[in-house]
Design a protein around this nucleic acid. Structure first.
Lengths: 195, 195
DNA sequence: AAAATATTATACGATATATGTAAAATATAA
DNA sequence: TTATATTTTACATATATCGTATAATATTTT
């Protein structure tokens, strides 16, 4: 699966340049030639390494997901308190939403013909079940209360990440820090195996 | 000069949508049809109101400059202390740099064929001399020391705005607030008519 | 309601830009 | 030098964008 050129400077140049441009403007607005120009690479080497723009976008997307997944998995096996684990989980969720730009997502849904949509949906399904499995593992270990559906937990962490950036909640709690503390406390005491 | 449709909702919709899109992606990446779609206006009404995309961009640019200029002019005639005046001047300068996006500027210089470059340069020249005139006025009134060239003042305020956002200076001064105070104090005592 | 006006949808030819490939020229490494 | 990798240039093809014309549809005015 690993191509011989995956560790070359040019490969990384294309990858990084494209990620930056896709991030800012989405896939549609960015041309292959533009990527090459900014990466200091000829169009031919681009096509030697990637079949086309969309495949590159998929590749970049997958890498972002991979890194996020690895972080999540590591977190779940970390030996820290439930409170701490939840805090980091939410942080990760927020970081994740910042890592995939609005422009990127918009291209996904407004331009489904790019073929990115199917790919992202597929990945999401896999990711989703992988996270759920991590939750189940934590339940088996007695870290999380066992009579909660992992899917619900997943949904809930997402909502938490949303809430934390909500101006209204911050006003209610006085400051973002207080809001986080409040939410985590609430979440932890509702979820953790109470002794 | 004022067109009959300049106060209509559709006009404003086009204007606002285009400004937002140009702001994010520059002029080149945004198409007329995209502007229309997002503004909820047909292409024909667009072309009824604006001859083409570039003219719209010029128009938007001019408006931004106009507003900034008006704010500056008002500031110069405000009855506040020299310190306060300088602080607000710098704030205005910073706000101004935030008001014209990097993407917009890049299109200006990387795509000179759009014809925007000449226009911006022309406007800059006018703006520049207008600000210089304001400085001269302040000198006549005895608010600013009279043996300083207005062009130098202009250059200096720009440098100040730069310095304030410089991480290095902030570290030196301890905090952004301290940095601002330090700079303004320095600027004021070097420039104000000492009694 | 009818007439006048404004707005939209659609279609269109004309350009402009983007894509992916081929072949020749140049640089780099063995 | 020979072999390999990379770039340059050019190209055919496809797609996107532009600006306009026209007919259909809303909206206002009379």
């Amino acid at each position: 699966m690993t191509k011989p050129f995956e560790n070359t400077a040019k490969y990384r140049a294309i990858f990084d340049t494209a990620r930056e441009l896709f991030w800012k403007h989405g896939v549609r607005r960015v041309s292959v030639e533009e990527i090459c120009r900014n990466a200091g690479v000829s169009k031919m080497t681009f096509y030697k390494m990637f079949p086309n723009k969309v495949e590159l976008a998929k590749h970049i997307y997958d890498r972002i997901v991979d890194v996020a997944m690895e972080k999540f998995r590591a977190l779940m096996f970390m030996n820290i308190s439930v409170d701490e684990k939840i805090r980091k989980m939410i942080e990760l969720k927020i970081e994740g939403t910042h890592n995939i730009s609005q422009e990127f997502i918009q291209d996904l849904y407004k331009n489904p013909d790019l073929g990115l949509k199917v790919h992202v949906e597929e990945t999401s399904r896999k990711t989703w079940s992988m996270i759920a499995e991590c939750f189940r593992e934590a339940q088996r270990k007695g870290v999380f209360r066992s009579d909660i559906r992992p899917e619900f937990l997943l949904y809930y962490t997402e909502k938490m990440a949303e809430m934390i950036t909500d101006e209204r909640l911050i006003r209610i709690c006085g400051s973002p820090e207080e809001a986080i503390k409040e939410l985590i406390g609430f979440f932890a005491y509702g979820i953790s195996e109470h002794q």
